[in-house]
Design a protein around this nucleic acid. Structure first.
Lengths: 122, 122
DNA sequence: GCGATAAGATTACGCTTGTAGTCAATAAGA
DNA sequence: TCTTATTGACTACAAGCGTAATCTTATCGC
């Protein structure tokens, strides 16, 4: 599971994180339609994710049921850390500062985060 | 400049954001030694960044001086937005929450961000 | 002036990614 | 039983990426 999950693969993971186990067919039907993928494309991606051990499959009759091996939380935290390390020297504050400076933060964001931090200290 | 900057290319950009204009040689010398790149590799990357119009060069005698066309801030905010959109539905709060939950936030982070947010509201 | 150097330009090459098409086996229906 | 539809396995293929090596040309020291 050390291997990186690509962008297209990630779209497949999102489906399985949402609901699992699923057949390849199910996954193909649930993947973001924006992608406009053929069923074959989804199967290829499932195969690659298997090879990366990001998912597993078990036989069910003559087809497979797929389910995630990597937890969404682990993935999400890992990707976030990578970005923060790469661009902000590992510190979260500059990220927030940059977004704020660009007006990328709504008033709601601000109060949500404040509340969250307050809780953390409690 | 619409084209994405790859990871290796980003390492070169960091050098030019730090100091510019620089010759290819200068860049090669300043790139993170961790990478262990040959000068040729750096030149290839400079060429690709030129093609992507992420940097520009002007002649100086028989060599070029390179400088960034893309601002670091734009890059950084863009990448951050991409991640937040992809993984957190565009909202920053869940990112902070996830990191907090994993103890990826130090007490210092927390007070820094609190101070920052307080300023924002002022 | 001539050979060694240094700079940029061109070419290379295997791996990953996005996006399928094709093949083979099996199950289900006629 | 023979045909067809389904499902997984294998193959394809161009573009992007990481990582250079080689070729060409111009300059600099002798």
């Amino acid at each position: 599971m050390a291997e990186r999950i690509s962008d297209a693969e990630h779209a497949v993971m999102e489906v399985l994180w949402e609901e699992a186990p699923l057949t390849a067919q199910d996954v193909a039907e649930r993947v973001d339609p924006e992608r406009g993928w053929s069923t074959n494309t989804v199967k290829t991606l499932l195969g690659r994710l298997l090879a990366k051990e990001a998912i597993a499959h078990e036989e069910q009759g003559r087809r497979y049921l797929y389910r995630p091996l990597v937890a969404r939380d682990d993935y999400v935290v890992g990707e976030s850390r990578r970005l923060i390390d790469r661009l902000f020297g590992g510190r979260l504050t500059p990220l927030v500062a940059h977004l704020a400076e660009r007006d990328e933060l709504t008033a709601q964001d601000i109060s949500e985060i404040e509340a969250l931090l307050k809780d953390l200290k409690a």
